[in-house]
Amino acid sequence: MPFANIKVPQAALSSAQKEEIVHRVTELFVDYFSEAVRPHTMVLIEEVLDGGYGRADEVYVIPEAYRARD
């Protein structure tokens, strides 16, 4: 079973964007492995809380301008 685990900052994606990612990643796996994998493909989108990750030794908080609007 193909499995994709995608981590994004909390509130960075709208529900529609998450749905699109699920569909596009599923299609990617189908392109590589064949249509037979579609019913067995799992795509997990995890939202990481602000301050729960960092880059270059700095704790990251997503700017308000980049937050998704549902």
Rank of each mutant, 00 (worst) to 15 (best):
E27G: 03
E46R: 10
V59K: 09
S14K: 08
M1L: 08
L44A: 15
A56M: 10
T26I: 05
R67E: 01
F33I: 02
D57E: 11
S14M: 11
K18T: 05
A68F: 12
Q10H: 10
E64N: 13
F29G: 02
D31T: 13
E20Q: 14
Y60K: 01
V61F: 11
H40S: 13
M42A: 11
A56H: 12
A56T: 11
V59E: 04
I21L: 15
F29Q: 00
T26W: 02
S34F: 01
K7Q: 14
V30L: 02
D57P: 05
F33E: 09
G52D: 08
Y60H: 06
V61A: 09
F3P: 01
N5K: 12
T41F: 00
L28Y: 06
V30I: 15
V59S: 06
Q10P: 01
E46D: 15
P39R: 05
P2F: 04
L44P: 05
G51R: 05
V22T: 09
Y66C: 10
H40F: 11
V48D: 03
E58Y: 09
S34W: 00
I6F: 06
D70G: 15
F29K: 00
I21N: 09
G54V: 07
D50H: 10
E47M: 11
A12T: 01
G51A: 08
E19C: 10
V43Q: 01
P39E: 03
L44Q: 14
E19P: 06
F33S: 03
S14R: 07
Y60F: 12
M42D: 05
M42C: 09
Q17D: 14
S15E: 15
E35V: 08
D50M: 00
L44S: 15
Y32D: 12
L49W: 04
P63I: 04
M1C: 05
V48C: 10
N5L: 13
M42Q: 13
R38W: 03
P9M: 04
E20D: 13
V61W: 02
A36H: 05
R69C: 13
V8H: 00
L28D: 01
D70F: 08
A16T: 15
A11Y: 06
Q10A: 13
A56R: 12
Y60T: 02
E35G: 04
M42E: 08
D70W: 07
Y32K: 15
R69V: 14
S14L: 13
H23L: 06
P2I: 06
H40Y: 08
E58K: 12
R38M: 03
A16D: 14
K18C: 10
A65G: 12
L44F: 12
G52R: 00
T41M: 02
I21A: 07
K7V: 02
L44D: 12
E47S: 07
